[in-house]
Amino acid sequence: MSLAAAFDSGRFVVTSEVGPPKGTDVAAMLETAEVLAPHVDALNVTDNQAAVMRLSTLAACVHLTQAGHETVYQVTCRDRNRLALQSDLLGAASFGITNVLALTGDHVRVGDHREAKAVFDLESVQLLRVIQTLNAGTDMAGKELHGTPEFYAGAVVTPDSAPLAPQLAKFEKKVAAGARYFQTQAVYDLASFESFMRFARRFEVKVLAGIVVLRSARMASFMNANIPGITVPEGIVAELTASEDAASTGVQIAARFIRGAREMCDGIHIMAIGAEHLAPRVIGEAGLTREVPA
């Protein structure tokens, strides 16, 4: 079932993430995909995540599609100008890849090739508009396409961003530019997420709550200190500190949030960040376990 169809079916959608390898060996990535696939509706494939150079997302999506997985092709604007972005998007469509997540992308200065030229010829709002243009059968120059893609475009939002007002104003721009679904930055505070969802529900878009499974109190404190837009409440940090099995506690914390958020949003996106084996446990404990129809 396509991601769009999964949303339309009204089910609580689950997606997760796989990262392409640094190198040509895709075996581990495909293995991770096999572990996750029975529990999710789609696998989101990162694009040189955190500006760290890896195998191309498009190639990874092709591998995963050919292995029978529903993918979400992440496209950032950091490394390619408008010709390359359109060109890769058409390439993806030619392989039957339709789900695209449009992002501006982390800056090259935070990655492992910090001397590189940061491109940013376009950014997320403009990229969404370009996807809409391609779907309508022309390129950015107004030239007609021979063979038209049917992309299902999504975007990201940071519900705990400070200050919040400009972030929400940008969310509206993304909706206007053609975003059909949103994936949020990791969220932990249900009350704060609920208030974000009251805003988001004014628009005809689907929202996946971002879940990052905490594995230790140290990880939670690190994220609070270093990852913009993520707030792990003190109570959760204390819960992890007191736990003798922090990884299991992290799974329970995630599952609890999902149970609470289930009536608020349309699904979840689990970013396991190197602990993909925990994702099925989270899904199970949240009571979402079910056979995913083909």
Partner: peptide, 30 residues
């Protein structure tokens, strides 16, 4: 830092750029 023309990215941190070397231009513009 990214020359964005349509609002702040997700990297803004209490009004600071994710690169930590300047205020977020889009928070200031807003």
């Amino acid at each position: 830092a990214k020359g964005i023309l349509n609002g702040p990215c997700g990297g803004v941190n209490d009004g600071e750029c994710e690169l930590g070397d300047r205020p977020c231009a889009w928070v200031e513009i807003h």
